[in-house]
Amino acid sequence: MDKIAVLIPCYNEEKTIEKVIKDTQRCLPEAVIYVYNNNSTDRTVEIAKACGAIVRNEYMQGKGNVIRRMFREIEAQCYIMVDGDDTYPMESASEMVDKVLNHNADMVVGDRLSSTYFTQNKRPFHNFGNSLVRSSINRLFDCDVRDIMTGYRAFSYEFVKTFPVLSKGFEIETEMTIHAVTNNMQIENVVIEYRDRPAGSESKLNTYSDGFRVIRTISRLYRDYKPMHFFSAMAFVLAVLAIIFIIPVFKEYWETGLVQRFPTLIVCGFTMIAALQAFFNGMMLQNMAINNRRTFEMQLNGLHRKKMSVIAEEKDVN
């Protein structure tokens, strides 16, 4: 088990990968650096190997697929994940490592939005999207994470080995955040200085398609982790619609003793039944979510004991 593993997912980053690796070696000389190549067609792999990084490959395209491979293969007490585009300063890495190793943090977020992101980033829709996602998640999940989409994070062994990677692309950061929040894992924020990509380096993030994926991921995870809230809201909307449309039918019946709009009455009846079904589905799924939390806690305890055992054995060997 490595003490510190630096994980760098890469796709065509030949212009910046050398600087990222050298900055990492300077700021974290004790770390083992892993570059995970995701089908690059330029000199990324050649440069990374020449700089002394361990290079591995993930052939399924997408950042989520790369992170799944990294988390599955690497064993470490502390993980630092950073993009290979040289937008994040490695000088902040030691503080992030300290929070994991010495302050029990499960995930440390490199917070760009509290510093230079909005002045450095030249894509206004990215700025708007980051703010929207941050406010949505903090409101829906009752938390205070200051940067949801950052690619600069530190993780504990327990987080990495319990995180179920379901996303394939850039929505993976959102999934990480919600996983940590809903499982009551310790999250810390470290303010970092963000810098835009250097000239000639192009972002792989598509503002619109990846933005819609992030929104879809938030909706899916809200349904999965907070089913009572999700289905109660659905039940409320359906019930309100049924009541609104059935009031004129009852009013007409009260005045004339006749029901003239049977289709409306039938549709409203089925809509109210759907509302009740949604509510009771939420109750059942909430119980399942609570049981999943219990199982997760047991798994977490087992992983912690495993990690401490490995560390103790390594100390005995040394």
Rank of each mutant, 00 (worst) to 15 (best):
V32M: 01
H126Q: 12
H304E: 13
N121K: 15
E13Y: 01
K99M: 14
S136W: 06
T271S: 11
P9G: 07
Y194G: 08
F250R: 01
E75F: 11
V55E: 03
G151I: 07
N318M: 04
V133Y: 12
E158T: 13
L7F: 04
R146L: 11
I33C: 04
G52D: 09
E46Q: 15
F212V: 07
F163M: 13
L132R: 07
P164Q: 05
N138L: 05
R213K: 15
N189C: 06
M272L: 15
E171D: 14
I17K: 02
Y79P: 04
N12Y: 01
M96R: 06
P124V: 06
V133Q: 02
K306Q: 14
T295V: 09
I246H: 01
Q25R: 13
S131F: 09
D2W: 05
M1A: 10
R26V: 04
I247F: 07
T162I: 07
G129I: 04
E91L: 08
G282I: 13
H103K: 13
N121M: 12
E58M: 06
E73Y: 05
E13T: 04
R195K: 14
R294K: 15
V145G: 12
K3E: 13
L132C: 10
F280T: 15
F71K: 00
Y225M: 03
S203V: 11
K306P: 02
A199G: 05
L276T: 13
C51K: 15
L205T: 14
A278F: 14
R153D: 00
N318E: 06
A275T: 07
Q299V: 01
D85E: 14
V240I: 13
A233D: 12
G110R: 09
P248W: 10
F128K: 10
R123S: 12
A278K: 08
N318S: 07
A180T: 05
R72D: 09
R139D: 05
N318H: 04
P248Q: 02
I4P: 05
E173Y: 02
T271A: 12
V240D: 11
E188H: 13
R261A: 10
E255W: 02
V249K: 04
G110N: 05
E95W: 03
I187N: 08
N102A: 05
K307Q: 15
A105I: 11
E171L: 03
V20H: 06
T150R: 08
V160E: 06
R69G: 05
T87K: 06
N65H: 12
Y36W: 01
P227Y: 03
Q260F: 11
T177A: 14
E95V: 03
Q260D: 11
Y36V: 09
M234F: 04
I74M: 14
S114D: 08
Q260T: 11
A275H: 02
F280S: 14
V109L: 00
P164G: 10
Y208V: 10
E95K: 15
I17P: 06
A235W: 06
C143F: 05
P164M: 03
Y225C: 03
K204Y: 08
Y152F: 15
E252Q: 13
C51D: 05
E202F: 12
V317F: 09
Y88N: 08
K99W: 13
M96G: 04
Y11N: 02
M298N: 13
M234G: 05
Q61G: 00
A199K: 06
L113Q: 13
E18A: 11
G151F: 00
A233G: 06
K19E: 11
V20E: 00
F270D: 02
M107V: 14
R195D: 05
E171W: 03
E18D: 08
F141P: 01
